[in-house]
Amino acid sequence: MSLSSLPTAAAEYDWGIVWDNRSMLLNGLVTALEVSAVALIISMVFGMALALIRLGRAPFSWIAAIYINVFRGVPALVSVIWVYFGLALVLDISFSVFQAGVIALSLLYSAFLAEIFRSALNAIPKGQKEAGLALGMKPVRIFFSITLPQATKIALPNVGNMFIGMVKDTSTFTVIGLLEVVRVTQNLVAETFQPFVLYTAAAALYVFVAFVLDFLFRLAERTLDTPPNGALSRGLRGRKQRRIQALIDAQPSVRPSTAT
């Protein structure tokens, strides 16, 4: 964009400072992604556990339902203040800002992911588990070999959306001083007095990350397609398919029982 085409006030916009401070901004972005990624992994484990408890027996399923409904409603800003100033005091531990951010996000997103996993688990036909049981498989094995892979495929797009939400929620962690994108931006604004330019750059970073994450999760979803769809999916499963093909080729293709 050419600066001369903007209104006169815009002539004071110094877009060059974004480039000059790119490494600070990108470091902020990396911090935001790190906090979110660690929290995502924790939230997936706890979210799945919560979903299973929620689908299970009565007194426990109520407790899970209460947790889910409370923490879905808590803003990230409040969550991180609870963790950093409240929980730390109660447990008499001092968290680093990174740890506090991870815990705060995990508390909230375990609840969101629990609901996503619950509906994914519910979407799997009853006959799948029954077939596993009828074959004599143990419930744990049925869960990991039959239910979970199918539920993962269903849940994946929503998990991707949650991850994008987590990255954006890290922006509130500026309140505890985590050097994520917004905190970095605030520091730069204090030095340069260019809030419009810098916050626009920050927003562009979030949008860019959302695009990339969406793309990556779509890719991951496609690798789970049956039959394998796309080069990546075929590449990942090619070895297995070749093993099966070898078994097919090694055997006589006529049916001995019908030959007579």
């Binding site: 049981l133 009828a134 074959l135 199918q150 049956t226």
Partner: peptide, 17 residues
């Protein structure tokens, strides 16, 4: 019991993945 009894279902119930 289930390890000595096999079952074939009306809706096949193969594992689609």
């Amino acid at each position: 019991l289930r390890r000595s009894v096999g079952m074939v279902f009306q809706s096949f119930n193969l594992f689609p993945h």
